[in-house]
């Protein structure tokens, strides 16, 4: 599935919930289920500057040149959001990730809560993932030229 299809799938999943509490419970569930991050990346180097909760993001390339993202947060709702971002982005090529449009946040009806403000650091998270993608993409391109 490409990034757009995954986003559509998430929107569909959320569409069965009509009140905020179910949506949040789902996010909390996702946060709890998210695989643990390798503790060696839970350091200041991988910390995203959020305002009220801490988020760590790490990305690396696998053998096929796809970006593998792992992350963690000390707040469970934030962790649920990060889990969704990982589901959308992780496993895709840096080129896809750097150009991808992020639409699902609006469409799942969480926009007013998860608006890209400094409070939840969503914008910073997405920015950090794109920065990783751009760095890996640039590296891949220069590798091709050599």
């Amino acid at each position: 599935m490409d990034i757009e299809e995954i986003q559509k799938e998430i929107v569909e999943e959320f569409s069965i919930y009509d009140d905020w509490m179910d949506k949040y419970n789902y996010l909390i569930e996702l946060g709890k289920e998210m695989p643990a991050m390798d503790p060696k990346y839970r350091t200041d180097q991988y910390l995203i500057d959020g305002c009220t909760s801490r988020v760590w993001i790490h990305a690396e390339l696998d053998d096929e040149g796809k970006m593998i993202i792992t992350a963690d947060s000390d707040a469970i709702i934030t962790k649920g959001i990060v889990a969704l971002l990982i589901r959308v982005f992780s496993g895709h090529s840096p080129e896809e990730i750097k150009d991808a449009e992020l639409t699902f946040i609006d469409e799942v009806g969480l926009k007013e809560n998860l608006s890209p403000t400094r409070a939840n650091g969503l914008l910073s998270m997405v920015h950090q993932i794109r920065m990783y993608a751009l760095a890996f993409y640039t590296k891949q391109q220069s590798g091709k030229k050599e």
Binding site: Y24, T52, S53, T78, N113
Partner: peptide, 20 residues
């Protein structure tokens, strides 16, 4: 429970507090 999580749920219940 992280203060941010508490604040998010309180907000949805109409209660405005500060967290952080």
């Amino acid at each position: 429970i992280h203060p941010y999580d508490t604040g998010m749920i309180l907000d949805k219940l109409g209660v405005a507090v500060r967290t952080g």
